[in-house]
Write a protein that binds this DNA or RNA. Structure first.
Lengths: 348, 348
DNA sequence: CCGAGCGCTGTAAACGTTTCCAGCCACCGG
DNA sequence: CCGGTGGCTGGAAACGTTTACAGCGCTCGG
């Protein structure tokens, strides 16, 4: 047991009567004479030596840490991402730094800039909105970055996006296919990217099916449970036979508000959510929902990032400084409809 | 824009025509002649300098990082902890490293030992079970540790615990107080700490109310939704008028299984869960649940840890090596019953 | 029996900071 | 006019590693 102070490579060298170079070599498995190896091993074990990761990082310029920055760890969508990312990075021997930006843009920019402090080898970021400042920070970032979200084409950064336009359309078409005609729409704020995309998908699917766009069937509100419940109040007068909700929270709030006033789900009104979070399964009736692949997006983002980090080492002795970095890749994860009881077909 | 390579304190020194010592001083706000300050500031800005956190950490022996290790980031209980911890540590200027142990004991031990690599300044750990190896690792830990969970009294480590015995008792008493007599119990595995505690509380409350302990009313199973649904099958023959479930997942599964077979909740059978997670609110009917204060426990753990880290600096020049560390503190967070529709009183 | 070669070892430099210490200069008082 | 004082400054060491390089002894072949 060390008497209070952490042993270093130097203590071991003294204790074993060899040089620090030999200690380092032995501990990194670079061979050596048999009794040297033996003595060093024993000394290390006796002193309870643990290599100092900070010193090592300083020496070889990598921390074996990755950062994931997202708006809010309370949101189930981000929880699935964290989980997927964590599992990939852990397998690759990287630690994961979690950064909650609280959906504050300056905080996101700060994270981007802080890449320069070499605290982590790379960053996965999930920005709430993309401003010019973001684009600027992304293009000049001091290390590899992967964005989860939609980015203009000319930003030279790897990204993984969901196709929420298609997702919304799938949901709406599913409703028409199961006999619904008056499809209400509980959307989030119209000026956010997710809100805009869902609106686009909703309109496209309606047009596709020859149904009119009816303003009285559409509500814009916040993205939470209470707003979903409140939206029901405003939509009922328009006599919808289905509700398409922009996320599971809204859908849950809406479904329960309907039940509370005696409207049957799905018999009278069908309900669809988005994200396919635990909430969709937890609701009663279980909610049909569109899985936008948050887990899959997390996994892909982590792999893209690891790829960037592997890159410099591979290839037969290329000139590192001069070789242009591989071009950015953009992956789109397709949506997937998960049908549950909340949209059973009407027995018309 | 730096031409590819990160500027260091040396680049700035050259660029500004001063020594690296001066650069360091200026950048740390230690004054200097006015034009020196000016030149250094300008050079740093021009080169886009960001201090290297690794080098700094090596120098002053702290990383400003904290680690939180828990079994599974998918579990809402741990999500609330992460959230609370994150918010405390962020405010104190620490980054948060997340480590998912996947409920594997060796992984927990590895985390404990890895404290020695100086990757983080302290650790909050939420062990799934406490073995002798854990106790050993805890007492010899290379840095400050806070345990979320129950620990033998003689382990010299700060800890924060929930009182799940009392929590279970509150839940059961609430059921008897609202007119229930045959209280079924869906518990987790009996050989885990949480399982044992809940059992203890259940028995105590029954005794308290003069009700018999009836084996046919008790089921031991896993801690998930499906198990809750399955448990209903086994308990219905015993004709319970209430179900106390060891967590919200079980309660949710049970409630929906009941609904699915036409049993009314709460009219025929009341249901109570534990943890008061988002699931309790999401279920239909909304579930009464016992809040074991996961968020609060996270917050407290983070504060205990920060306290330990602050400690060495304060006090008027005490002999640091000799002074005994402040004694370990143990805090218990009291449970809190949250009543919702799933336990409305019978109109008997 | 001698020289080349090889395997192992130790010395020292480097990574990017912070900080101790000594030196320099200007200014002030005697 | 000279010594002391005090504010700034630069050189250098230190944090704990990894690694290039040179030196050493041994073995083996001629």
């Amino acid at each position: 047991m060390p008497n209070g102070v952490q042993p270093t490579i130097v203590s071991i060298a003294e204790h074993a009567g060899v040089s620090i170079a030999s200690v380092s070599r032995v501990l990194n498995g670079q061979g050596g004479r048999h009794d040297t190896v033996e003595r060093v091993r024993r000394a290390a074990a006796e002193l309870g030596y643990v290599p100092n990761a900070v010193a090592r990082s300083l020496k070889d310029g990598r921390t074996r840490q990755l950062t994931f920055a997202m708006p809010d760890i309370g949101n189930p969508v981000y929880v699935s991402m964290v989980r997927a990312i964590q599992s990939v990075t852990k397998a690759a021997g990287y630690r994961l730094l979690l950064h909650s930006t609280d959906a504050v843009a300056e905080d996101e920019l700060a994270v981007l800039h802080s890449l320069g402090d070499r605290t982590s080898d790379g960053l996965i970021i999930c920005p709430i909105r993309i401003t010019d400042a973001h684009i600027d920070a992304l293009t000049t970032a001091a290390g590899p970055v992967v964005v989860i979200g939609s980015l203009p084409d000319d930003v030279p950064v790897d990204s993984v996006r969901a196709d929420s336009v298609a997702g919304a359309a799938i949901a709406v078409r599913h409703l028409t296919d199961t006999g619904r005609r008056r499809i209400g729409f509980v959307n989030g704020p119209s000026d956010t990217v997710p809100g805009g995309n869902r609106d686009q998908g909703y309109r496209a699917a309606l047009a596709d099916r020859g149904l009119p766009y009816d303003e009285t069937l559409v509500v814009h509100t916040a993205f939470d449970v209470e707003s979903g419940a409140a939206a029901v109040e405003r939509l009922l007068p328009a006599r919808p036979d289905a509700l398409f909700c922009a996320n599971d929270q809204l859908a849950l709030g809406a479904a329960h508000a309907l039940l509370a006033r005696g409207v049957r789900v799905p018999e009278d009104i069908a309900v669809v959510g988005m994200d396919d979070s635990a909430l969709a399964r937890a609701a009663w009736p279980p909610l049909t929902s569109v899985d936008l692949g948050s887990s899959e997006r997390g996994r892909l983002a982590a792999e893209l990032l690891l790829d960037r980090l592997r890159d410099p080492e591979e290839g037969p002795h290329q000139d590192r400084a001069a070789g242009p970095p591989p071009p950015p890749r953009t992956t789109t994860v397709p949506p997937r409809l998960v049908v549950r009881a909340s949209t059973r077909a009407v027995a018309a």
